[in-house]
């Protein structure tokens, strides 16, 4: 489903290379975990997948269902099924959350040639999804993410993911900021979306999340490259011993 081939990318303003020859393949139905030290390029990779133009891909390719997405803008990628749950979701004053959700859902439906949702149907979907994630409708009346607590922002990301039903879900440290109950609720939300035609990339620092969302593969990212790939046992090893040995062995 997702194939990243020898990807090199720089910060557009400064030409500093952050992603330095990264290879990663994730199959449909697979849950892949990406772990790695602070500053290794995990969020950068997620932004590049989503199409943020602060970064410039200098060589290599990203194939989604066999087709390169490098020329697509973020909205086209989203409509094609790429979803990024942000590590730091942005607060957008003045844009009502409900209005945003409705516009996003309908723009994607339009892009896919589906009929737009009518208001009652939309409200029903949001209520159901919000209920599952223990999000109050009161919160959704506020401007998008404005004044949401850290954990509320993360839940709101997963709410958007549930409503938009993407094909490739990229979760960037969705577990950080969540309390124990919320971690469980959010993980259940993610697991509910697991399906043979959907792939998930979970970026995390902690085994705790992977106890709930059990990965099929685990990849270690260091200095802009995947330096080791393994199964769920690799995450446990990292939890126990840290990155030093693995990174040293790869270097």
């Amino acid at each position: 489903m997702l194939e990243i081939k020898d990807l090199h990318a720089t910060i557009a303003d400064t030409d500093t290379e952050i992603i330095k020859g990264l290879n990663l393949t994730v199959q449909a139905g697979e849950v892949a975990a990406i772990m790695g030290p602070n500053g290794s390029g995990k969020s950068t990779l997620s932004y590049i997948l989503a199409g943020r133009d602060d970064y410039e891909v200098t060589s290599g390719d990203i194939l989604f269902n066999g087709e390169s997405i490098l020329e697509m803008d973020p909205s086209e990628r989203a409509s094609a099924g790429v979803f990024l749950a942000f590590q730091y979701p942005m607060e957008i004053p003045g844009v009502a959350t409900m209005q945003f959700l409705k516009v996003a859902m309908n723009e994607q439906r339009k892009a896919r040639g589906q009929e737009e949702l009518k208001t009652p149907e939309f409200i029903r979907l949001v209520k159901a999804a919000a209920g599952d994630l223990d999000i109050s409708m009161e919160m959704l009346k506020r401007p998008l993410n404005v004044g949401f607590s850290g954990g509320e922002k993360k839940r709101a990301e997963i709410l958007q993911m549930k409503l938009l039903e993407p094909k490739l879900c990229v979760l960037d440290e969705t577990d950080s900021g969540l309390d124990i109950d919320a971690l469980k609720i959010v993980s259940e939300g993610v697991n509910a979306l697991r399906s043979p035609d959907r792939a998930t990339v979970v970026i995390t620092h902690y085994q705790r999340l992977l106890d709930y969302i059990v990965p099929d593969s685990v990849h270690v990212l260091s200095k802009g490259k995947i330096v080791k790939t393994g199964d769920k046992e690799l995450a446990k090893e990292l939890e126990a011993n840290g990155y030093a040995n693995i990174i040293a062995a790869a270097a």
Binding site: A50, S75, Q108, A111
Partner: peptide, 9 residues
């Protein structure tokens, strides 16, 4: 970017 990443043109 945030809005576009949700599929909004």
């Amino acid at each position: 970017f945030y809005l576009m990443a949700r599929g909004i043109k």
